[in-house]
């Protein structure tokens, strides 16, 4: 039997992810041609710095949505980790202690979500709406309306400076490494296969001996830890630890992931598509901003893109009904 029904180039090019990549390239080309100042080196620098937190969080979010679950508490974890980082610094701990401590706290936040969802059998949507309020509430409660801002310059500069003379910020290296790690995890390990199987049919996965609960727990812990890392970055990038940092970012992350071709039903998704989805939102935002368009219009664009990205494949697929496949054709 043949291994593949279609030649390799078709399998590589005719994908949902390619569509997002194409739109990204087109947006880039159009913006460079039309928008004044878009093709300058500063665009790349700010693009990377701005999208970094969303990009980071989008990686574990891809895996979570691929299982058919969701984590809406990520932006609140960013806020809580930012506050923790700031408070530990204020209390005189070195940042090399504050950083891992904040990430650890994020992992604990994720473990709480994951335990409730996986072992408590609670719907992730409801649980993480609750923990969105809870973690944000803790962040705001701990720091009130004040902010911690006196971070050492060596750290805040590190978060924004470029690699030598290039337009690429140093954080690009970290992003690339994490993207690679998550891509391998999802696409080339038994764990990643299990993740997709759970999203397609968690019953079938369970009957194949996949530990669905543990897999979900691991994913939520990852999501919490990476969100906390993004929180530390966010704090250093803006030099300010505040309880309301990154409020509402969860919606941007989910939008980017879905734009990147991950199915909200679970079972389908690829890291390269998600990276393209995040960058697409970033490019549109910075191009429109350079054009003097307000953030409002950008929101309309993102919102519409999100709706279209979900509706379009359904219409293209001839409105195939997603039914319980078991409604028998036999006997």
């Amino acid at each position: 039997m043949r291994t593949h029904a279609r030649p390799w180039w078709q399998r590589a090019l005719l994908t949902r992810e390619m569509l997002t990549i194409l739109i990204l390239v087109a947006a880039w080309v159009v913006a460079s041609a039309v928008v004044q100042g878009f093709d300058g080196p500063l665009t790349i620098t700010y693009l990377v710095l701005d999208v970094a937190p969303v990009l980071l969080i989008a990686l574990p979010m891809t895996l979570i949505i691929a299982t058919g679950e969701i984590d809406l508490s990520v932006a609140s974890v960013v806020g809580l980790s930012s506050v923790t980082f700031g408070l530990l610094h204020q209390a005189g701990f070195g940042l090399w202690v504050a950083l891992p401590a904040s990430v650890l706290l994020g992992a604990v936040c994720g473990a709480v979500n994951g335990t409730l969802v996986a072992y408590g059998g609670l719907p992730s949507l409801a649980v993480t709406i609750g923990s969105l309020a809870l973690y944000r509430g803790l962040a705001v409660g701990l720091l009130g309306t004040t902010a911690v801002t006196d971070f050492p310059e060596s750290w805040t500069d590190g978060a924004t400076e470029n690699l030598g003379e290039s337009p690429w910020p140093v954080v690009t290296l970290g992003l690339v490494v994490l993207i690679a790690v998550f891509a391998v995890l999802l696409h080339a390990t038994p764990f990643g296969r299990n993740v997709l199987d759970i999203g397609r049919s968690s019953e079938a996965a369970r009957f194949s001996g996949v530990d669905v609960k543990r897999t979900l727990l691991v994913l939520f812990v990852l999501s919490g830890a990476v969100s906390a890392l993004a929180g530390v970055y966010y704090t250093l990038r803006y030099g300010s630890a505040r309880g309301d940092n990154a409020t509402g970012m969860e919606l941007q992350v989910v939008a980017a992931v879905l734009l990147g071709g991950v199915s909200i039903f679970g079972g389908r998704g690829a890291i390269h598509g998600v990276v393209a989805g995040v960058l697409l939102i970033g490019v549109l935002s910075s191009a429109l901003r350079l054009e003097g368009v307000t953030v409002n219009v950008i929101n309309i664009v993102i919102g519409t893109a999100l709706v279209v990205s979900v509706v379009a494949p359904r219409i293209a697929g001839g409105l195939r009904v997603r039914r319980r496949p078991a409604v028998g054709q036999g006997s």
Binding site: I70, L251, I264, N299, V307, V311, R314, I315
Partner: peptide, 16 residues
């Protein structure tokens, strides 16, 4: 009509 999850659609219209 498109049979897509309300969560995503209303997240989009929240923005719009």
């Amino acid at each position: 009509f498109a049979r897509v999850p309300a969560l995503v659609i209303t997240l989009g219209t929240l923005y719009v």
